[in-house]
Design a protein around this nucleic acid. Structure first.
Lengths: 141, 141
DNA sequence: ATTTTTATTGCAACTGATTTGCATTAAGGA
DNA sequence: TCCTTAATGCAAATCAGTTGCAATAAAAAT
């Protein structure tokens, strides 16, 4: 299933949100940078100055998250970062130099035995691999 | 190698920090709660009111982290949480109800093939499993 | 097409975690 | 014990993110 604007607009609408000019604009920024986790201030930096209030950006990001069209995570400094949801479950390889994120699938769960040993009921998990992406390795040569 | 006060004091000292009464006090709080990731405000809450200034707590935590005797992580709300470093590498099972953290070792790295495919140079990784610990499952019965 | 309802937005003020400048105090080596 | 310098308390500042409110604009109803 391809990601497209119509689809995203519908999801927003179905979640009870109005499809406004600002929401469309933010969506285009996120789609244009779908390989990156963007912080609110990254996003604001990509807009013409004065296009949108900070509070509006935060509110729209909340709405989109609620509508299930973007996923959020915290970077190493505790700042929220967002990207359009991927359709398949996955984990991340995050470049600590440029911030690019690459996905990889995850089927194995080698910690199953530890869950049992501790009688721990898993609800979710997260695997993140940090390092330097191919592009950034070239740059530093 | 067991964790003990002398050892921790030495590490602080070796990193160029003075071993003060406040640092000893914070260390005892962290040792008494070594199964939990504590936030600065958790820690302050465990002290007699007026024992130590907020800024001091933050500064000491920075020093201890720099000295390599505590590890830090961010909780789901972006708040810093700390605990005494474990001697062996491991990953976490974090109880979303009480905050207790359980360790499990990690040897396997099933993402190796994805690193190669993308020519991604790993520097570190993090695996966190969220869920409900044994104790909290009992409580909700 | 016009009116009506209600979500959306800008603005400014606010919150809560964390940091910083500065004067004072106290480690710990000489 | 003295002296140098890190550590500390206090107050003010910073920074991400949130909120109240009045004005605006979607989308639903007429």
């Amino acid at each position: 299933m391809m990601i497209n604007y119509q689809n995203l607009y519908e999801k927003l609408h179905d979640a009870g949100f109005r499809v406004t000019a600002r929401k469309k604009l933010l969506l285009s920024v996120l789609l244009d940078n779908s390989d990156y986790l963007l912080s609110p201030s990254d996003i604001i930096g990509k807009l013409e100055p004065g296009t949108m209030d900070t509070a509006t950006v935060y509110r729209i990001l909340q709405s989109m998250h609620q509508a299930g069209i973007i996923e959020s995570s915290l970077d190493s400094q505790g700042i929220s970062r967002y990207k359009i949801c991927d359709s398949t479950p996955h984990h991340h390889m995050i470049c600590t130099s440029c911030g690019r994120i690459l996905n990889f699938p995850c089927n194995e769960k080698f910690w199953g035995k530890y869950l049992e040993e501790n009688n721990f009921k898993e609800t979710s998990h997260s695997i993140e691999v940090f390092g330097i992406c191919s592009e950034c390795q070239k740059k530093s040569d």
